[in-house]
């Protein structure tokens, strides 16, 4: 079985929102920069005045790797799979999977797609044309 994220009070809203197919980012009300993953203090200006904002789900591929040797037996049936770092349109980067059979390239535009895995929903990304 694939390892499931162990939510905590600081991250629970993020995981809950995914069940409604929404990606939440923490945003600083002081410097107005969003960040990911969600933290208690703004990693840019260290303010504690933060709120949640919904991301557009659009982004680009910042980097990727096609995994041939899986991270443990839970992923053995998935190889080869493409793990990517996505740069969200809002700025922060997050790790995810690129779905679909198309060849991936850095800089490609992608949009979020929501995949249920056990009890949770994970945000994955698929290429968009143009």
């Amino acid at each position: 079985m694939k390892p499931s994220p162990i939510a905590d009070p600081g991250t629970e809203p993020y995981w809950e929102a995914l069940k409604q197919r929404r990606i939440l980012l923490k945003r600083c009300r002081s410097c107005e920069k969003p960040h990911f993953y969600p933290r208690e203090l703004c990693p840019h200006c260290y303010s504690d005045d933060l709120d949640w904002v919904e991301a557009s789900g659009k982004g680009t591929v910042y980097s990727y790797t096609v995994v041939h040797r899986p991270a443990g037996p839970a992923y053995a049936d998935d190889v080869p799979y493409t793990v990517a770092v996505i740069e969200l349109a809002e700025g922060p980067r997050m790790m995810s999977w690129i779905t679909g059979d198309d060849e991936v390239r850095i800089g490609a535009h992608v949009k979020a797609t929501f995949v249920t895995v056990g009890d949770i929903v994970l945000p994955m990304f698929e290429p968009v044309s143009g």
Binding site: K2, P3, S4, P5, I6, A7, D8, T11, W15, F36, Y37, T65, V67, R69, P70, A71, G72, A74, Y75, D78, Y81, V83, M94, M95, S96, W97, V117, L122
Partner: peptide
């Protein structure tokens, strides 16, 4: 090669099987 437990900051990395 398995990941670290998917808690704290690794909630956002371990599930992806990197």
């Amino acid at each position: 090669l398995a990941g670290r437990p998917a808690s704290l900051t690794m909630q956002f990395e371990t599930p992806w099987g990197l």
